[in-house]
């Protein structure tokens, strides 16, 4: 069963840089859009709130596969040029998960007690300072665990890019290995699944460190969860 283990592993690992690039790019775009749209949903201007809502509901309400095919196959016919598959993928991963992330940001900011706003006003801080120095550092601690889940979802969604010819891990397995090594699909898929498991563990470990850092910045003791990770030295 494990005759070609090394060959399978190296072939699949050849797809890993693209999986990592798509996930990393998607995460950066997700963070950006989450904060922009999340804070926009809390804006005082009705129009800004409305636009942010339309983005969030529109991207959460449709299927990610449709979004990917739409950007990759339909948009080029409308605008006359085609995105490189990887960039189209990163764009869709970011836009889709950014819509979910916006709700995380909005929820976390709303969860900061009112007294904190009032305290900041009493200290004569301006609106920008209130958000940046008082509200966001506290909200940020609350955001980390849900963002951890969201980033793992994003990693899993990066496998969709195999459908638009990005040669990431899933594509390497299904297009390159499976057709050429019939009868050995079990080994191929087990390696593939374990690779994804390892990548999602990496995300979780990094996010625990971020959580510890965020708690320190906000002047709180680290949560039990983050402390355990710290003591294990991972």
């Amino acid at each position: 069963m494990f005759d070609n283990f090394e060959l399978f592993l190296t072939t699949l690992l050849r797809g890993a840089p693209l999986t990592v690039a798509a996930t990393g790019g998607g995460i950066v775009l997700t963070i950006l859009l989450s904060f922009v749209a999340g804070l926009a949903m809390l804006s005082r201007s009705r129009w800004v709130r409305f636009l942010a809502r339309v983005y969030v509901e529109g991207w959460r309400g449709t299927s990610e596969v449709v979004q990917l095919f739409w950007i990759y196959f339909a948009v080029p016919l409308l605008v006359g040029f085609q995105l490189v598959p990887l960039w189209a993928g990163i764009l869709v991963l970011g836009l889709n998960h950014g819509a979910y992330g916006a709700e995380i940001v909005r929820g976390a900011v709303n969860a900061v007690p009112r007294a904190q706003h009032e305290g900041a006003i009493a200290l004569n801080l301006g609106p920008a300072q209130r958000i940046r120095k008082v509200i966001l550092p506290q909200a940020f601690v609350e955001m980390v665990p849900p963002f951890n889940n969201l980033f793992i979802q994003l990693l899993k969604s990066s496998s969709l890019l195999s459908l638009i010819t990005v040669t990431e891990i899933t594509n390497q397995g299904v297009q390159v290995l499976v057709p050429n090594y019939t009868g050995q699909a079990l080994t191929i898929f087990l390696i593939m699944l374990v690779l994804y498991l390892i990548l999602s563990l990496v995300i979780t470990v990094v996010m625990r460190l971020v959580e510890r850092w965020a708690a320190r910045v906000a002047g709180r003791p680290a949560t039990a969860r983050a402390r355990v990770t710290g003591e294990l030295g991972i």
């Binding site: 793992i152 990693l155 899993k156 969604s157 990066s158 496998s159 969709l160 195999s162 899933t170 397995g173 299904v174 499976v178 699909a185 079990l186 898929f189 593939m192 699944l193 994804y196 498991l197 999602s200 563990l201």
Partner: peptide
């Protein structure tokens, strides 16, 4: 199951 992609799991069922 929660840490790995549904797409890969579907292929798994279909090919393995």
């Amino acid at each position: 199951v929660r840490s790995t992609p549904l797409l890969v799991q579907l292929y798994f069922l279909f090919f393995v």
